[in-house]
Design a protein around this nucleic acid. Structure first.
Lengths: 162, 162
DNA sequence: GTCCCTATACTCGGATAGCAAGTGTCCGAGTATAGGCGG
DNA sequence: CCGCCTATACTCGGACACTTGCTATCCGAGTATAGGGAC
């Protein structure tokens, strides 16, 4: 199982957007520089988050991206699904109905037992991600980020957005 | 997030191996026919399960694959990790240490807060899969599989393995 | 001094290549079996 | 009739193509801003 590389970027960008003054848009270019990632590809990630209604794009000169909802109304699951897609990880192709033991379709249970177990596990994963909001993350990070890093980050932001 | 196609096949094969008389080897070719999947690719999947110590390969004429452990000692997580690999889905590339806010490495917490949250969710997923054994699956399937399908499957097995 | 207009520079958005990994396939090495042969 | 030997057919295992989707990039459409000019 593999999660796209962009998920990490999307999460970090959402965190940054949750830390700056609310309503203040930040260009994708600046977010890319801030994280040291390819600007053009990060733009694609942010487009996905915009399409999912997580962030809203502000066009024009002083434009950029800003959160579309409050930091308590955005969960980690929202970001992950927006970036990576909301298709289930386990794909059931109903192979139980194929081969020499196949019987008419109406005799089968609606969902395959194996698939049910796999999807239940996925639901546990989703529940865990759903239980953490950007607000929680900001709270934890306030303790975790080195003071010097905060200082340098704030200074850089104020400089490039002047 | 996407799980490989072979995971489904591996799970169904493990289930079949858990239902036949213990110690009885079944060739990969028969398992492929039984499930209606490409034989050559399924062989690759079973090789992975063999390398992981889940099933053991019996060479020679009446050979095939059989479970290497009791059906109560094999969990869904074992099968999934054997087929799909045990790398974590979320890959942290430590982008927090890059860009203009970077500070010396010793000032950072050992693990990124975001990565910790993601990995905790993965652990919930693993816990859910770990809690279900092949024995549990066999018990559930005994109720779920149509009686006609069982009859046809057993008859086919006895015929091709004669 | 104030208002309006225009040109600009910057932003997002979608369409376009490159590449790695999953998907699918093949052939060779090895072994238990089945049959035949000799005793 | 019994035991041994050989040839066979079947098995797994690893090495080899192909396709999908992730990764990365570019250029065009649209807009808020900044400056200049007119009143």
């Amino acid at each position: 199982m593999r999660l796209g590389e962009g998920v990490e970027w999307g999460l970090h960008c959402a965190t940054v957007l949750a830390m700056v003054p609310p309503g203040m848009p930040i260009p994708a270019n600046r977010l890319a520089e801030f994280h040291g990632v390819p600007p053009t590809y990060l733009a694609k990630i942010l487009q996905g988050m915009s399409a999912a209604g997580l962030v809203e794009a502000v066009p024009g000169r002083r434009g950029g991206y800003r959160l579309a909802r409050g930091i308590s109304d955005i969960t980690l699951l929202d970001v992950v699904l927006a970036v990576d897609g909301d298709e289930p990880a386990f794909r059931c192709t109903e192979i139980r109905r194929r081969g020499p033991s196949a019987v008419p379709a109406r005799q089968y249970t609606p969902v395959c037992t194996i698939a049910a177990a796999m999807w239940e596990a996925e639901e546990a994963w989703r529940d865990s991600l759903r239980s953490i909001t950007l607000a929680d993350l900001v709270g934890s990070l306030a303790q975790a980020i080195p003071a010097d890093a905060v200082r340098k980050g704030v200074a850089w932001m104020q400089e490039v957005l002047s």
